[in-house]
Design a protein around this nucleic acid. Structure first.
Length: 285
DNA sequence: CTAGGATCCTGTCAGC
DNA sequence: TGCTGACAGGATCCTA
């Protein structure tokens, strides 16, 4: 689930709660979700919170870091002593539910609150590593540039190298362009009027430029609204996460009219993933 | 090297 | 009601 904008939202939000705070205790409920020895992080202070693509890094004061990847269903929920809650990640009732619960895999105790790592499907993880080893981590090492740092030429060249691959599969590959997931891939392709099944080799330089620009735009917009929306989501209705509705043009909008031309949005399968398109605006050439 | 499919895991929902 | 299969905001591994 959580894609770059959600992880960035978490990163910014958590700073207010855990920066310069000491991890007093780590409790691991699911071994698969935690790699390394919790003791190496306990009684150490969070000095920085960084993000590499969809991975979040907590740097501690002893040259140790915690790398957190939420994958599909991970969530980070900070529950403060004064009952304030900050939650982000895969939207679910866990944001307002009693914690810890069945889906809680790890918790980090701070002096004035607890950070819960919940993850329904157990694909996500927290792992301990030396701060200096982060650049050598197999996942981090492979990450390509994020859309904001990539030039049209760079992306176009990658498209030529993967000319027979569907463009959606290609932009989901974090070693090609970093940050997009299933939502923002669909949104960016729609914004650029590109059908997700187009082969990369058929994408023109002009289309590549538009796609890159669209990717930045949809994620910028999400980051801008993400934090506050998530916060109000947690406080207010408490039912279902609806922050997608604010900006999604196609994602989860199958059956509804395209906001551009009125044609019904349809859902297809591309690269094994549910994919949402406007069949009129995104023609398969 | 690339491209596509299976796989990890739990939960929910549609259809019979 | 109970069963079954499909599917899910990710990434990796295996195969051809």
């Amino acid at each position: 689930m959580p894609e770059l904008p959600e992880v960035e939202t978490i990163r910014r939000g958590l700073k207010d709660f855990i920066l310069n705070k000491k991890i007093q205790k780590i409790e691991v409920f699911c071994d698969k979700s935690f790699q390394g020895q919790p003791e190496n992080a306990e009684n150490h202070t969070v000095k920085d919170i960084r993000r590499f693509g969809k991975a979040l890094i907590l740097d501690l004061d002893n040259d140790i870091s915690l790398m957190i990847h939420l994958r599909m269903t991970g969530q980070l929920i900070y529950d403060g002593a004064k009952k304030e809650r900050y939650a982000a990640g895969h939207p679910s009732d866990n944001f307002t539910a009693k914690l810890p619960n069945k889906q809680t895999r790890v918790l980090l105790k701070f002096p004035d609150g607890t950070l819960y790592f919940n993850d329904q499907r157990k694909f996500g993880f927290i792992k301990i590593l030396e701060t200096k080893e982060i650049p050598n981590d197999s996942f981090i090492k492979k990450l390509a540039k994020e859309p904001w740092d990539m030039t049209t030429d760079e992306l176009y060249e990658k498209f030529q190298r993967h000319k027979n691959s569907c463009v959606k599969a290609t932009i989901l590959d974090q070693s090609i362009i970093c940050g997009l997931g299933n939502i923002y891939a669909d949104e960016a392709l729609f914004a650029a009027s590109i059908h997700p099944e187009r082969r990369c080799g058929t994408i023109t330089r002009e289309e590549t430029a538009k796609l890159l620009k669209s990717a930045c735009a949809v994620m910028d917009r999400s980051i801008e609204s993400g934090g506050s929306t998530m916060a109000t989501y947690v406080k207010a209705d408490g039912t279902k996460g609806n922050y997608l509705e604010k900006f999604a043009q196609v994602f989860h909008r199958e059956g509804q009219p395209c906001l551009n031309c009125g044609t019904k949005i349809i859902k297809i399968k591309v690269a094994g993933r549910g994919t949402h398109i406007c069949p009129h605006c995104q023609e398969l050439k």
